[in-house]
Write a protein that binds this DNA or RNA. Structure first.
Lengths: 340, 340
DNA sequence: TCATACTGCTCAAACGATTGTTCTTTAATT
DNA sequence: AATTAAAGAACAATCGTTTGAGCAGTATGA
């Protein structure tokens, strides 16, 4: 293979200067009054040679990399995979590319990825933080790199975030359970200090209190299948089983399903289950799970939009956006109003 | 924030030349006989300034980017999300990073991503090709960029690939169905010309023939839920329904489930279902789906290993690896041997 | 006829690193 | 003392683009 065609080759072939070629190829031909004939000739040669600009050279020169990074706790979790997919596609629309970092839910990894990725002169960053620390994120931002948190976030910091209205989501889910006659409800939570979790617990608790129910269980400590499994096992071994379980994530719900299945507890006959997060599989689970669906696509789109307003418009004001969730009623919650 | 410290700043502060600084920072101090005192001084200043080399300048100069790209049909498909996750993590171990491209299963997008990504001076590429064309892939390789296909691949080309032994997988699945007494089996295939599909059809057909069964159905044309749904609908509307369906992917299986549910056809009582691909959700579906599980993790690990042998060891020989699948018996296939 | 303005394009300096070559100084050898 | 070798460091070209400034040549207006 010869060398990749560059702007110099095109200049030599067309007989114009490098400057002219560069300007035409950057769509600045009009601006610099380069004749139409010239523009067309350069473009056609570029096409013919399948010229692709060397991003490194360009980036070196202009100091922008047209690259953003996305750090998620785990791509294996369909929830984050969807985030990655949407973010990736949205970012492409701006002509940027996405570097994906996987923190495996460890703050240490998150920090490593952060420093590894920032050496690539990123233009922006979207993070689903996995810990309760945000100093390293703020520092990145203070160094001039626009950064946005999605899903999980921190209040009272200068960091922008886009997330679901977790409080409202949890409140509606709980309200729905109560309307269906449930009073003995246990929720299995995720990582305790994480903002979505805090809000969900609050929404859950408020809904209970507002219904005049003071006794409820909040247990668990991770957004994992294992946590869901163990906590459900424990709940089932209690003297009085709750009539409904509220799982705070899809993974937790899977753990619940596993435990319930093992113990031969039928859903929703023996126990009702409602969960946060939706995904296509939910429809084919036995039974289809009633869930609180997060507007993942919108969250990502808005996050990307804000990120680019930070990058391109130099609008550095931190923005905080919460989007409403949707209750999707399926078949995993039983109406127990009249069954004493 | 001032400007990011660069090698020139360090040179000025320490009083040494740019060359010397560069050599020290690249660990070539010994080689160029730079005194220990000098080395230490330079390093300490670099530390103090938190110097991070500008990857673009370096890449521009040396033509390597410590970056590989992965192109998948869709991150939303858990099967590819897992691939992305594993590849990403493996690649990190080499100190490289991964750019992820999403072709949305359109060859045109694949080509675009390809040219877009190659402008970033990649060091290597892993692709799950989505079409029946490979010219653009071969061309990339001929341009000196190591490239490996995973999952989907092409024979008789110079491209390396790592994939499942789809023939064997389909053969075992079919054999299993036959052992369970099924003779009227329909399989719903994916993209026709794709190698996994071709091999699966062959495996399926051979197993049937070897069992002396000459009548069977092969239908469908995409690895999508919609295809699974439509084809199942059609199968159900036939005069004589098959006793078992073999779905060629997780997505197709979901479509089958949807259609079967709509038509109130119970699995496995009324019809048996077996599918390619496994994932955690499979266990909680009603009923848990018997499936052919692909060794995704191993496929990715081997692919990355081969890729880096191409990149680092300059071993350019194309390698072809097929890994065995595993039959996971769950509850979606009924033994109909004695039920006439 | 001479400024002036516009057209259409080119020069050359950056961007930040790497690296083959070269230079100077000191030490070792004859 | 003269020659050679080694040590320690610097020069300057280079990677492929972008871009402010500049330069001919032609057209316009007074």
């Amino acid at each position: 293979m010869q060398h990749k065609p560059n702007i110099v080759d095109i200049a030599e072939i067309t007989g114009f200067s490098i400057t002219t070629v560069s300007r035409v190829l950057n769509g600045k031909g009009e601006k610099y009054r380069i004749s139409k004939a010239t523009r067309e000739k350069i473009k056609s040669v570029a096409d013919e040679l399948k010229y692709v600009p060397n991003e490194f050279a360009r980036n070196l020169r202009i100091g922008k990399s047209k690259t953003i990074a996305l750090i998620v706790p785990s791509l294996k979790n369909p929830f984050f995979a969807e985030i990655a997919s949407v973010v990736n596609n949205e970012v492409r629309k701006y002509g940027y590319i996405t570097l994906i970092g996987d923190s495996d839910d460890q703050v240490e990894n998150e920090k490593n990825e952060l420093s590894h990725l920032t050496s690539r002169s990123l233009d922006g960053m979207i993070v689903v933080p996995c810990g309760e620390e945000w100093d390293h994120l703020v520092k990145v931002q203070e160094n001039g790199l626009p950064l946005i948190c999605i899903d999980r976030y921190f209040e009272d910091t200068s960091l922008s975030y886009v997330s679901s209205d977790n409080y409202d989501g949890a409140y509606s889910a709980t309200k729905y359970l109560i309307e269906q006659g449930h009073t003995d409800i246990a929720c299995i939570q995720g990582v305790r200090y994480s903002m979505p979790n805090i809000q969900r617990v609050k929404g859950f608790a408020d809904a209970m209190k507002n219904a005049g129910i003071d006794a409820y269980t909040v247990t668990g400590d991770a957004f994992t299948e294992q946590n869901g499994y163990l906590e459900t096992k424990l709940l089932l071994s209690r003297g009085k089983r709750p009539s409904a379980i509220f799982a705070f994530s899809n993974m937790i719900a899977m753990g619940c399903l596993k435990a319930l299945k093992e113990e031969n507890v039928r859903i929703p006959e023996a126990i009702s289950l409602i969960t946060f997060d939706d995904n296509p599989y939910m429809n084919y689970i036995d039974p289809p799970l009633t869930c609180i669906s997060q507007p993942v696509e919108d969250i990502c789109k808005i996050a990307v939009k804000i990120l680019f307003s930070h990058i391109l418009d130099d609008d550095k004001k931190p923005k905080h956006v919460l989007l409403k969730c949707m209750l999707k009623v399926k078949e995993s919650v039983k109406n127990v109003s009249y069954s004493f």
